[in-house]
Design a protein around this nucleic acid. Structure first.
Lengths: 204, 204
DNA sequence: ACCTGAACACCGTTCAAGT
DNA sequence: ACCTGAACACCGTTCAAGT
């Protein structure tokens, strides 16, 4: 038994993190574990399934993360907040992670557990709103970061689809570590708080 | 002068709507206007730029649509609501439209005008929250609809990343026209209302 | 069960050359 | 300015064949 399905998924996540979604081809994944492309199809029916498995893996630990467990016992809105922040961390932890999860796990995968937990806490409409905002914000954060790497930045104009302004160089964002924290994280938290306020007002 | 840049963009949007983003290749766009692939590169530097132009076109009419103009003069939250609904309509009007706009126009394109108008109405945090939720919801709606076409539906389980439940067959959704309105549109509106309530509560 | 090697029908992009 | 034709270096997926 040379390789298992889990080996393939792990290799795919390594390739994703190092080369990005655009370059995460079946051929690259195969060569990452030293195997012919065709061998992958013994572990996985097609590329889309592989992406779904990767999405599950990216999101796997969220509900049992330290931050989420630490929030247990608080009121529902505070717990929902902790889950969203942990979800964001998980999405940003691997390159193009938000993209992979948002598109691959459109329904039948691991985000279901998170949506169900959020539904228990804030109802179905609130859960959907929180989840879709979290995906969208993380996605646009990663897109922005990636464009910044390539120097494809827009010169002036404080514009941007969102998530990141030009003040990423803000020294106040020095807990960053270069991985996309800082003022962008604050923008995320403010969005979540707006939604939670709306949820709280509608179910008093 | 056989073809202009606008011709190329129009052809690309036709291909997108008929064959989906996955099959919207430079080669297909070229053959749509009866030209060799290499000719496209006289009008557009690369595929990514073409996608950005398509995204601009998809979103172009939103701020001046009838529905948005009809809301002029109302309070800011009502106007913001009208813009989001019109944006959703524009995104759903063409196949994979939400995908194209969300990823291609990550910043430097036509969504900027919409974000700026929303910022005037509800502030930057509210604008971003509304915009990202709108993109995310439309994207997941289109993904779901597409999966449904292919019969890739999940049997039981009222789950789903969002936007659409299994009750799409709800007869109350008969103003549908097969284009994704109905209960899904109500879920969108409820999400927008949650966010607007949150915005209203935070800036009294 | 797991893998190889070769093939099929595609991609995006470049480039000399035509008019 | 706009286009052709051919090429380059890739794709995802399939399939007979090996062990």
């Amino acid at each position: 038994m040379r390789n298992s399905r889990a080996d393939v998924v792990a290799a795919a996540l390594r390739v994703l993190d190092e080369h990005g979604l655009e370059n995460c081809s079946m051929r690259r994944v195969a060569s990452e574990i030293g195997v012919q492309v065709s061998a992958l199809y013994h572990h996985v029916p097609n590329k889309q399934s592989l992406l779904a498995l990767m999405a599950d893996e990216i999101v796997a630990g969220v509900l049992h993360s330290a931050a989420v467990r630490a929030a247990a016992g608080n009121d529902p809105l505070t717990m929902a907040r902790a889950i969203c922040l942990a979800l964001r961390d998980a999405l940003l932890a691997v390159r193009d992670g938000a993209d992979v999860v948002a598109t691959a796990s459109a329904f039948h995968t691991g985000t279901i557990a998170i949506e169900q937990r959020l539904t228990e806490l804030v109802g179905p409409d609130g859960a959907r709103t929180l989840l879709l905002f979290s995906f969208g914000h993380a996605q646009s954060t990663q897109t922005y970061l990636q464009a910044a790497e390539f120097g494809a930045l827009i010169a002036g104009a404080g514009a941007g689809d969102g998530a990141a302004g030009p003040r990423d160089a803000d020294p106040a964002a020095s807990d960053d570590g270069g991985s996309g924290r800082g003022s962008v994280a604050e923008s995320f938290a403010r969005g979540i708080d707006i939604i939670l306020t709306g949820i709280g007002a509608e179910r008093p």
